[in-house]
Amino acid sequence: MSTRIVPAPLTSVVAQVQELRDAVGHRAQRALAVARARWLFRSLQSVGRNVAAYGAMRVENEGTVELGDRLTFVGGMMPGSLVCHAGARLVIGSDVQFNYGISLESWESVQIGARCMFASFVRIADRDGHTKAPIVIEDDVWVAHGAIIMPGVRVGARSVVAAGSVVTHDVPPDTLAMGNPARNMSMELVSRETGT
């Protein structure tokens, strides 16, 4: 009499491998992203904890850059860029999320508050060839795909900058800015009209 190991059905093995991959893959990617961020942001003055970069980034720092905790730079089809020129200052708060292709450039001062969200291809630069003025983005701001924030703009807390808009004037708190040049609208009215 011989004991024989009954082979498990192939489908269950495949399912288990898949499950393991799903469980481990996520954490592995996260660990890789944190390691990549540590390497990419090595030239910055202060980097918070748990900063993750899931894709390539171009980082040039000659000024002062301070990053908060738990930042996420999502990777994608285009590398993001983070540039701080000599004597300039770039401060990013905690829990901010950046999608791919973002372009942050500081010649004087750019400040970004906590819990902001930046979609892909957003450009924030405080010099445009004519003027050089500091940009302030307060907490909980959502900037949608392809928006451009011009120099000297202050975007108020909890505001939303709509996709593709060019923000040339200040945006008050709790406001939706859309269009080129961006017009400020009440979020109440817009959400009532569109049902969102």
Binding site: W142, G146, A163, M187, S191, T196
Partner: peptide, 21 residues
Amino acid sequence: AFCKVMDNQHHPLRGNRHERP
């Protein structure tokens, strides 16, 4: 080139930004 076509805003305008509309 570089068009974006999406059928979901991914974040609501108001309320909890992490829910999907």
